[in-house]
Design a protein around this nucleic acid. Structure first.
Lengths: 244, 244
DNA sequence: TCAAAAGTGTTGACATTACACCCATGT
DNA sequence: ACATGGGTGTAATGTCAACACTTTTGA
């Protein structure tokens, strides 16, 4: 086991979509008195860990996701680095760090990554019971500066999604247009018109209809689509303009 | 003097506009043999330095700009963090680090900031003679991974400029519409139509015409404008959409 | 037969592009 | 008087927003 770098970490904001809302994966953090077993506090944190010696930042992020959630081969994007000297200095974090991680520095710079998964099919595995999904609209009490990190991640995700078709990372391989629309609505935080949405998607040649319909739903079954990364790569063009 | 953190640094990509092209500020790095005084190599690097103990990342960036260029109170934006283990391991960087900075770590994570200045009026002061402007289209040999850092900074600047009116940071307080257009062309890397450009700027209420004309030019003098950050803040609206 | 979501077009407003001539100044 | 960049309008096209009814299925 390689030693950790005591003052550099990565934190991963794992976004998941459950066909209704956008969720974030959080892990319960509970500090107990070692003698009385009394709970001193309970809150939640992102998945994070220190970077190891000889490890690139994105390797560290991949490792964190694998070790803390069992996820692998998922979309990952660095979005911001958090290095304020007071980011671990609220009361609970000081207690926690002293008791659980006395070996790490007081000033840890953390590189933020977000990743995108389909939260319905990809669930954190059995080994990580204290890790759960929370709606981005209704987050629990968070440790460190993780509320700020999530807020920034969400902002960066919105900007990214409005420029590039990364939403497909949040859906299963096959999806319907209503699901896709619902995803955009959840991430961008606003309602979209169904007919206009479908018109726009029709222009995206990389969203490909299959000769296949939904089954077992109590209404008219929807057509099923897939996203072709390959077609996107071949047809994309940079769109840079100055706006108002 | 506070001690440095040996494995965390900031690098500043200072962009400047000289009414013709977009430039980057670079500092000459020359390694000489201590005995013979023979030049072993010469190349250029960004302005950077290690973060000090007890210092926030953006404080470090502000300090670097002040100490290395004399600049202060300028636009500064964090854009990406560079932490590959091999980023200081090409031959020249190894030589340099061993001779000049033996106290720093071999693996330094660097937080990238870019800043925007008017390169015609703001010049690096006399104390920094080996610091010069280079066109982003014609960069010299660069140390470390600074070519990659500049490329990423330029990309982020383009994206930012196409979403927000930050171009005014690259101009003097008073400017003409041709200068503004020329700036957009330099940053976005493409020509724009003059009449259409002016129509669009006319819609930006925060670009305000003064009752004042250019003087001393050998052609029809242009009207002079200023940018009002205040009007912008009050009238801006978030524009998030999904695109093709 | 009912509930629930799928699917489908048109219109008016607005934004974008392409394009050419006269104007004010300094030399 | 000439060279230089400043300033201006229109028409065609493309994009965006608003809006309501019919269809297909399972229960």
């Amino acid at each position: 086991m390689r030693p950790i770098i005591p003052n550099i970490s990565v934190d991963c904001v794992v976004f998941g979509f459950d066909m209704k809302k956008l969720n974030v994966l959080l892990t319960e953090r509970q500090l107990k008195d070692p003698k009385t077993d009394e709970i001193i506090f309970t809150d939640y944190t992102l998945q994070g860990h220190h970077v190891l010696e000889g490890e690139n930042l994105n390797e560290a992020a991949i490792r964190v996701l694998r070790d803390k959630t069992g996820l692998h081969d998922i979309f990952l994007e660095q979005f911001h680095t958090f290095g304020n000297t007071d980011r671990m200095l609220n009361e609970r974090d000081i207690l926690w760090t002293e008791k659980i991680y006395p070996m790490v520095a007081h000033h840890v710079v953390s590189v933020g990554y977000y990743s995108l998964v389909d939260s319905a099919t990809v669930k954190p595995d059995q080994a990580h019971q204290q890790t759960k999904w929370f709606s981005v609209e209704d987050l629990p009490e968070l440790g460190f500066d993780h509320a700020e990190i999530i807020e920034k991640a969400l902002y960066c995700l919105r900007v990214k999604l409005s420029r590039e078709p990364i939403g497909f990372e949040l859906l299963p391989e096959k999806f319907t247009l209503s699901q896709l629309q619902s995803l955009y609505e959840a991430v961008l935080g606003k309602k979209l018109d169904r007919r206009n949405f479908r018109k726009k998607v029709a222009l995206m040649k990389y969203v490909i209809p299959l000769d296949e319909k939904q089954r077992g739903v109590a209404h008219k079954p929807a057509q099923v689509f897939i996203f072709s990364k390959d077609v996107y790569q071949r047809t994309k063009k940079e769109k840079l303009d100055f706006s108002i």
